[in-house]
Amino acid sequence: MTIFEQAPNTSSTNRPVKLVYFAWVRERIGVPQEEIALPSSVVTVRDLLHWLKERGEGYEHALQFPEVIRVALDHEHAEHDEPLGDAREIGLFPPMTGG
């Protein structure tokens, strides 16, 4: 990764993002989407999953095994070590089962 990896987030404390949930992630959290202000300590996808998990029982249930959760930043698949960057919409969902 580049040395600028964390730069976009240092200036965006409590940045509001739209979180959208699908399948059993949606059912367990209990809402299809929500606007949340992320603290500046949440930099990567993995940070987000661990931070969300502490928000209550539904989140704890949905994100019990954060490593299996798939995440999309503005409709693009993202790895867990990727920075959230300037993403406005973040999708959280289980492994896909289409086709």
């Binding site: 059993w24 289409g98 086709g99």
Partner: peptide, 28 residues
């Protein structure tokens, strides 16, 4: 196309049983 669509396109299947009950989500 089909191999990638199954694992990379954001779709999920839920099973609906004969008696109308929720049969749960299909596992990847």
């Amino acid at each position: 196309l089909m191999d990638f669509l199954k694992s990379k396109a954001p779709f999920w299947k839920k099973l609906i049983a004969r008696d109308g009950s929720d049969g749960g989500w299909v596992d990847a």
